[in-house]
Design a protein around this nucleic acid. Sequence first.
DNA 1: ATATTATATACCCATAATGGAATATGTCAA
DNA 2: TTGACATATTCCATTATGGGTATATAATAT
Lengths: 126, 126
Amino acid sequence: MDMARAPTTFDSFNAVAEPCRRQVLGLLATGELPVNDLVNSLGWHQPQVSKHLRVLLQVGLVRVRRAGRQRLYSVNAAPLKPIHDWASTFEHLWQHQLDRVKQRAEAKAVLIQERDGVYRMGPVKK
Amino acid sequence: MDMARAPTTFDSFNAVAEPCRRQVLGLLATGELPVNDLVNSLGWHQPQVSKHLRVLLQVGLVRVRRAGRQRLYSVNAAPLKPIHDWASTFEHLWQHQLDRVKQRAEAKAVLIQERDGVYRMGPVKK
DNA sequence: ATATTATATACCCATAATGGAATATGTCAA
DNA sequence: TTGACATATTCCATTATGGGTATATAATAT
C-alpha cells in the first residue's frame, strides 16, 4: 500500500539524485555519444551504463538516435529546468546566509584592525 | 558490497528527491515552524513529519532550535546551491531547446499568415 | 549463414527507504 | 509525583535500487 521510495524514473529529481547519472549527463553535455564511448570514458561495465541511460531516457533527460549498430545518446535538458526553478525559489535564502557570513567576517576584520591599530586615523591617545 | 541506492542522507540531491521533503522545505521557507504546525499544514502523521525532518537535518537543509517543549525548524538553504549550480550548467541547452520550439512556432505562424493572406502588403494578384 | 561488434535485458543479491502503529523521550504544569 | 503535551525513535512490511554476470537482440561484415 506504500511506495517504499519514489522510483528513479518517477521524475528528474529522482533520476538525477544518483551521482552516476549526473556524470553521464555531464559527458553528454558536449554532444551526442555512443554507449561505448561512455563506457570507455567512465570505466564502468557496459550493462551499467545502459541501465543508467535507460533511466535517463525514461524521464526524458536523454534522447537516442540509431546510427548503424550504435545508439547515439544526447542530452535533453528541459526536464532539468523544474529542478533549477525549484532551487531558485530558495536563492534569496542562501544569499542572505552568505551575506551574514560575509558580514561576520568583515566585523571580525574590523575588530582585528582595531586591536592592531591599523587604519587608526588620529594620534593614539595613550 | 554495494550501495543499493545512495542513502537519502548522502547529499542534498537525494534528500530533496523526495517530493514530501520539498513540501516541508516549502513550508519552512517563510520562517521557522514547530513540528506540529507542519503536521497540521501537511495533514501527515506526526512521526512521518519528524522522520522527514531528520533526513533534512542530516544533510543540513534545516536547523533546529528548542523552545520549551517545541522544536522550531528553519531552512538552511546553502546545500541547495550545489543543485542550482549543477542545473545551471545545462541552462544553455534548455534555452536552445526553447528557442528552437519558439522558432518553429514562429515559422509555422508565418506559413499560416501566408496561407491566409494576412499582412499581405500590396494588392493580391490573382 | 555465420561470426563479430554494439547495446539491451534478465536474474541474483544486499541494502535501504517509506508509511503506519506503537512506544519512548523530554518538557512543562498542577 | 503525576499528567498532559510535543516530538523522536523503533519495528514492520513492501518495494525497488544498483552492481555483477550471463545472455539476448540488433546490425554489419565475411
